[in-house]
Computed example of a mutant assay.
Amino acid sequence: MILLARHGETPYNAERRFQGQGDVALNARGLEQARELAQLAVQEPLAALYASPIRRARETAEIVAEAVGLEPRFDPRFAETDVGDWQDLLFDDVEREHPDLWAAWQAGGAWRFPGGESLAEQQERVIAGLVDVTQRGELPALVVCHRGSIRVALCHTRNEGLEAFQQIAIPNGALIRL
């Protein structure tokens, strides 16, 4: 079994800002969410802990690691989507200034961020990472990553297609069983 966890909240999450692969730290609420996640994780018989190397996931994984007694293994395949030109922009600004692109992003599917990666490319790398975790045989494993990474994994495992991407709610600090 593999469990996926979303990192704790960052200032960008609170501001509704695209952070993509930017190294944004957890805020105070995010640190508390990471501690709460750690308390959930200690109830699982975890054999391995993996994480995205992006700062917010790394910070969350380190808090979880201390509680569960496992050393996190950082894998860039679990990183958030490369949002390209939208990096650091507010959601509301993108929606107002680029309504057609915003609508396409909300529809999911074959979406590609301007100057960034497509959801299909992200899904391919995330699934490859999850296959490797499974093949290593150290299960159950926890992967601390990002909302987009969890969404593309769930679209795949639920066989829903990437059109379901935006319909999947993943709050900060959430723990999801694949």
Rank of each mutant, 00 (worst) to 15 (best):
M1Q: 04
I2P: 00
L4N: 08
E9L: 03
P11S: 06
Y12V: 00
N13D: 13
R16Q: 14
R17T: 00
Q21K: 11
A25W: 02
N27W: 02
G30K: 01
L31E: 12
R35W: 00
L37K: 02
Q39M: 12
L40R: 15
A41Q: 11
P45G: 08
L49V: 07
Y50T: 03
A51I: 04
A51E: 04
R55I: 05
R56G: 03
A57I: 06
A57T: 06
A57F: 08
T60I: 05
E62V: 02
V64A: 07
G69R: 11
R73Y: 07
A79E: 14
G84M: 08
D85M: 09
D93T: 14
V94M: 11
E95S: 12
E95V: 03
L101A: 15
W102S: 03
W102D: 03
A103F: 00
A103D: 13
A104Q: 14
Q106W: 06
W111A: 12
F113I: 01
S118R: 07
E121A: 15
Q123E: 15
V126L: 08
A128W: 06
Q135K: 13
Q135G: 01
R136G: 14
G137E: 05
G137M: 02
E138I: 00
P140W: 08
A141H: 09
V143A: 09
R147W: 10
S149H: 02
S149R: 02
E160D: 04
G161M: 13
L162F: 11
E163M: 03
F165T: 03
Q166L: 12
I168V: 04
I168R: 05
P171I: 02
N172I: 00
N172G: 14
I176R: 10
L178D: 00
